[in-house]
Write a protein that binds this DNA or RNA. Structure first.
Lengths: 222, 222
DNA sequence: GCAAAAGTGTTCCAGATACACCCATGT
DNA sequence: ACATGGGTGTATCTGGAACACTTTTGC
C-alpha cells in the first residue's frame, strides 16, 4: 500500500547551512532562488529527500549537486516543521550544518552563474522561508560546540598555525583571547601536534605548523 | 497541487522518550504494539504527524492521547530517517524526549489495559523499530544537559528537598556526589530558594523544602 | 633598524574536590 | 537510646584569567 493511500503526507527536505571562515569573518554559502516562492531571494542549499535515501546522504548529495562541495564536516542540526513554513505545501525540513576550510572555496566552487554566493554572517540578506531562523540556530550550535569539542579545526586545512586556530575562536565567539592562555589551553588538550614545519608569510617571524592527531575526527573534550 | 502528485512522499512521525525517576531508577514509559510490524513488542509512544500540525504540537498530542500525560517538559531530540527503519514504508521520525515528576504517574496514567508500562532504563526489553537507538541518544542528551542546565528539576515536584535533587543527578549520571559539595554547588547557582517548609518523612530529621525561582523554565547555567 | 606578527612564564583567583561530625525525628 | 537520613565548614587542588617582553623575519 503506497504512502499516499494511507495518510496525507508532508514532504521532507534537507537544508544545509554551510559555514566557512574567510577574510576574518564567518561566512555562509547561499543560493539564489530561481523560482517562486521567494524567487530572487537567497536561501540555504538543500532539497527534497529521495524516497530511499538516508537523511545524511541526502544532505551530502544536495550539497554536492548544488555547490560541488564534498568531504565537509556535516552534522544534523534541528528539524523545522512549522506547517506554514513553505507556502506551497507542508514541508518538514531536517536542517544540517556543514563546515569547510576556506582554502577549498576557490578550488571547488565556481559560483556558477552567480546563483551561489558567500555572505558574511552579519551582513547576509534576509533569507527565504524560515532560513533566517535555521541559520541562527546553526550559529548558536557552532558557538556552543567550540567550547567542548575540536570542531573548530574543521575550518582549517590539514596543517595550520596556532594563530589560525585562535582566529577561528575569536571570530565565532566574537571576543579576543589571550595568546599565551590560548596556546596553553589547546596544547593541553593533546589533540594537535607540531609538524616540524613553519610557514613564512610576511615581514615577521614564521609560525609553526600543527596538525590534528586524529584528522577529521571531532572529539568531545574536557 | 497535492503533495502526492509531485514527489513520492515519506511519512512523518514523532516518537517520544518519556523519562521519570521513580524508586531510585531512571524509568521510561513504553507502549506495547497491538499490530504488526513488531506486534507485541514494546515501543515508544508516538505516531503520524497531522498535515497541518506543528511537530512539537504533534508530540504533545500523541503523548496526551496515548498516555494522558500533559504539562511535561518536552524537547526535540534528533530526527531518524534510515529508509529501512520501518518495514512497511519510508517513515522519518522526529524523536522527542519528555521529563515528568514521578508523582504524576499514578494520578494521570491508568496504564490502560496493560498497553502501557514503565520500565527501568537498564532492564527495559528490546524495543520495536530503531527505538533502542532513540532511547540511547535520549539518555545521552539527558546526561549531558544535567551538567549545564536546570533540567534535573523537571523530574521533581514543585517543592523538593536537596537530597531529592541530588538523587536525580546520581541516578542519571550513575555516580555518587558529596552531599556538602552538591548543596554548595546548586545553591550557588541561585536557581532555587527555600520555601520555609519542611518535609517530615521517617525516623529522622526533616528535610527543608525548596522551589525553583523560575518554575518550569530550564535555564542554561555556568 | 624598524615594522609586524610569533612565541614564551608566572602570579592570582575562583571553582571543584576531599573529608567527618552533629542534628532532628520516630519508634 | 538508637537508628535513620538531614545538615554543616575547612583545607587543598586545579584550571582559567591577567599580564609584558623577546624572537624572527622581510623590507
Amino acid at each position: 500500500m503506497p504512502a499516499s493511500e494511507r495518510y496525507p503526507e508532508p514532504a521532507i527536505s534537507v537544508d544545509v547551512v554551510i559555514f566557512t571562515i574567510c577574510e576574518g569573518a564567518l561566512q555562509l554559502l547561499l543560493a539564489k532562488r530561481q523560482r517562486p516562492p521567494h524567487q530572487g531571494k537567497w536561501a540555504l542549499p538543500g532539497g527534497i529527500v529521495d524516497l530511499r535515501e538516508d537523511l545524511d546522504t541526502s544532505a551530502l548529495r544536495h550539497l554536492r549537486e548544488q555547490t560541488s562541495l564534498t568531504g565537509v564536516y556535516l552534522e544534523q542540526l534541528y528539524t523545522f516543521g512549522n506547517p506554514s513554513r513553505d507556502p506551497r505545501m507542508r514541508v518538514v525540513s531536517i536542517a544540517y550544518y556543514a563546515l569547510t576550510p576556506a582554502a577549498r572555496l576557490s578550488a571547488q566552487i565556481n559560483l556558477e552563474h552567480n546563483r551561489l554566493r558567500w555572505f558574511t554572517f552579519t551582513t547576509r540578506p534576509n533569507l527565504a522561508f524560515d532560513h533566517d531562523a535555521i541559520v541562527d540556530v546553526a550559529r548558536q550550535r557552532l558557538a556552543a560546540k567550540l567550547a567542548y569539542s575540536t570542531i573548530a579545526m574543521q575550518f582549517l586545512p590539514e596543517r595550520f598555525t596556532l594563530p589560525d586556530l585562535q582566529n577561528v575562536y575569536e571570530i565565532i565567539l566574537g571576543r579576543a583571547f589571550d595568546k599565551r592562555n590560548f596556546r596553553k589551553h589547546v596544547l593541553a588538550l593533546d589533540q594537535i601536534e607540531e609538524t616540524g614545519e613553519e610557514r613564512r608569510l610576511g615581514n615577521h617571524r614564521p609560525a609553526r605548523l600543527y596538525r590534528m592527531k586524529r584528522p577529521g575526527q571531532v572529539e568531545v573534550i574536557k
